[in-house]
């Protein structure tokens, strides 16, 4: 591998990391919001796939990709609200319901998505951050989608809101100690319902990115566990929105490894590199389980860390 090739791989990795990380980031922020309220939603894989389908379908029929993004969020919102409502019933296990919604959301998306596999819908436009360099490889690598910046801004906002607003305080209190929240007269079920619904909205938008920007079309193999990996990512990021962004970029870079090596002709072990994000997630989970700092940052009511 020569210096120039290394340079191209590096830029392809950075560009790829930004591209691949955006859906991770939205799902992770949504999951972070949900988990902060003390509940876990494993069903974001379903939200992601349904969001991708709805976004593509709406963009195809109306011609406006941004309307598609909004509709995807709406679909995710409905799934999230259903999850939140069902989990508020006594004796219902939130992890199991998450698995159910994974299957429900994916089933709905495949059912209604059949007619949209062939046609091509208008996609989201990117911002060319590298155009000034005049180097086509760099310019191509630094095509960044506006949703990436929306996600980063959202992470900063959430981080600020968790710490500095009344809503943030109520959310964190519900997540850390349901008893204290109840004593303060807060309706725990309502807070968790809203948090799960908002989390589902964000996960749906993550799906819209998949079908409308990268890979940029709707098919049934579009998502391969991103929704679930984002749950592990939130644990790794220790429930901090800003760290979620960094973790998403790391996962994105791992996911971009295979395609960027392929861009300079190394296709050996393509499937192995495709598995890199899963292996990375697993090792991160092994490393971060039982760590003291993770245990102290975790919301106290969260079933997954108990």
């Amino acid at each position: 591998m020569t210096g120039a090739e290394l340079f191209i791989v590096l830029f392809a990795m950075i560009g790829g990391a930004i591209r691949v990380s955006t859906p991770f980031m939205f799902v992770a922020l949504g999951e972070c919001l949900t988990e902060k309220s003390g509940r876990i939603n494993l069903g974001h894989e379903g939200n992601l796939v349904l969001g991708a389908m709805v976004a593509y379908a709406v963009s195809f029929t109306t011609g406006s990709p941004w309307l598609g993004v909004l509709a995807a969020g709406g679909a995710g919102l409905i799934l999230g609200a259903m999850h939140g409502w069902i989990c508020a019933l006594p004796r219902v296990n939130d992890i199991a319901v998450g698995i159910a919604f994974m299957s429900f959301g994916t089933g709905l998306a495949f059912f209604f998505g059949k007619p949209f596999i062939q046609p091509s819908a208008p996609r989201l436009e990117a911002i060319g951050l590298g155009d000034w360099t005049g180097n086509p490889a760099i310019a191509q690598a630094l095509q960044v989608n506006p949703l990436f910046f929306v996600g980063v801004a959202l992470a900063v906002f959430l981080s600020w809101a968790f710490a500095n607003t009344r809503w943030g305080l109520i959310l964190r209190m519900t997540g850390d100690s349901a008893a204290s929240a109840r004593a303060m007269g807060v309706s725990i079920d309502l807070v968790r319902l809203l948090a799960t619904a908002a989390g589902g909205f964000l996960a749906g938008i993550g799906g819209a990115f998949l079908s409308l920007y990268y890979p940029g079309s709707w098919n049934e193999g579009l998502s391969s566990g991103q929704g679930l990996m984002a749950v592990a990512l939130v644990i790794f990021a220790r429930w901090d929105p800003i760290r979620c962004v960094w973790a998403a970029l790391l996962f994105g870079a791992a996911g971009a490894l295979g395609p960027s090596l392929q861009s300079i002709g190394i296709s050996q072990g393509y499937y192995f590199f495709n598995a890199a994000p899963y292996i990375l997630t697993l090792f991160i989970m092994i490393a971060s389980a039982r760590s003291k700092s993770a245990a102290s940052d975790a919301p106290g009511e969260l079933s997954i860390v108990k």
Binding site: V92, A100, G107, F111
Partner: peptide
């Protein structure tokens, strides 16, 4: 995917019935 939708509905309703 019709069967998938039916399975998803069964799954959700079943877990709701745990209550």
């Amino acid at each position: 995917a019709t069967i998938l939708v039916l399975q998803g509905i069964i799954f959700v309703v079943l877990l709701t019935s745990e209550t």
